[in-house]
Design a protein around this nucleic acid. Sequence first.
DNA 1: GTCTATATGGGGATAGAC
DNA 2: GTCTATCCCCATATAGAC
Lengths: 217, 217
Amino acid sequence: MKPATQPRILDAAEKLFARHGFESTSLRAIIASAGVNLAAIHYHFRGKEGLIRAVIERRFAPINDERLRRLEVCERRADGRSPTVEEILEAFLSPMLRVGLPHSGQGRLLMQLAGRLLQPSGGMLEKAAGSEFERVAIRFLAALHRALPDLPKQEIAWRINFTIGAAARALSGGIPVKVLSSASHENLQERDVQRVLQRLIAYTAAGMKAPPANQRP
Amino acid sequence: MKPATQPRILDAAEKLFARHGFESTSLRAIIASAGVNLAAIHYHFRGKEGLIRAVIERRFAPINDERLRRLEVCERRADGRSPTVEEILEAFLSPMLRVGLPHSGQGRLLMQLAGRLLQPSGGMLEKAAGSEFERVAIRFLAALHRALPDLPKQEIAWRINFTIGAAARALSGGIPVKVLSSASHENLQERDVQRVLQRLIAYTAAGMKAPPANQRP
DNA sequence: GTCTATATGGGGATAGAC
DNA sequence: GTCTATCCCCATATAGAC
């Protein structure tokens, strides 16, 4: 028996989106891969934008839940005191990087997809990703503000954005410069996620804890 | 007398690309704004991809020249010793963030454009941006390796990628999460670039200098 | 409720007249 | 160098079969 139409569409769309990006993937390519009719997409998802949103939400809702869950765990473990910046950042970054096992093709596809998702690229993607991120961002901003009471909240907000940018690089494998990609992009395909996560946390935690620059130069 | 067709196309395309992104901007929108014929784009630039590449190269070649020039200046000033990480990163980041004055509309447009450019988003952009970056990336990787001799070169390559990701966030204004964008996106439109640069350098320099994570967890 | 067939309008690209 | 006319592909919408 063959799987239902809806998940077949979602699986095919996720794979193609991850490989070619959202705007470069046509619905026709998706229906060919899924073996369904074009109008089925419109029926189930109300068009391409709805399909993108459904793909995103299917995968990122659990990630965001996991982020919040981990944050609560390490806050409870800290028992009244604030968790370390490293712990908070691991709660934020790890679920995204760890989805799927290192050897799972689906996991790596999702990492590429996530790398694309996190970057603003022209309108509708922001909306789809933004609503998912919002609840998470608020919680983590508060947690980091508590861990770094000397930093203005505005500075922390900036640094969260910098951190997201760094994570997006890690997920998408970096720029296609040979000298850099030999050390990142290629390896990302083959090495384990844990190593990348360690590098990313070492970098972003140090940046997060940096003394703020002089505001009057 | 009216300007030549070619720069008119480039100006209109840059403006629209900056505003709506590359894939969401139609050639027809560009010709309407530039007041030229559709085929003129294909004649001068061999299609949309060539136009994107031309827009990119026109703006980024001088930026990359400036990066290399600044790196040489601070290396000469260091007189045999290595410049600080902060100096190297400022040479790398500042030309990109400083193009145009804070109040120049063109400068801000370019910042948005650059923010989009630096993030991998589906194929052809990487190629266009990658060739531009290559010569710069090699030089800065070497300079940072000299400034941070204890770090493996591979680790530095990863951190350069993280740094680029953070810079891309600064340029594009961050994710559209209200609580974060109130502190970044909105202000980026109105406040001076110097402030952003200071924040970015404080964050990325700390990340760059962080002790590497344990490789055996 | 689920899907097929088909129509519409907009997109990038190209050949060839001027 | 420039423009007109045209081609083919795509996303979307809808009517109606099952």
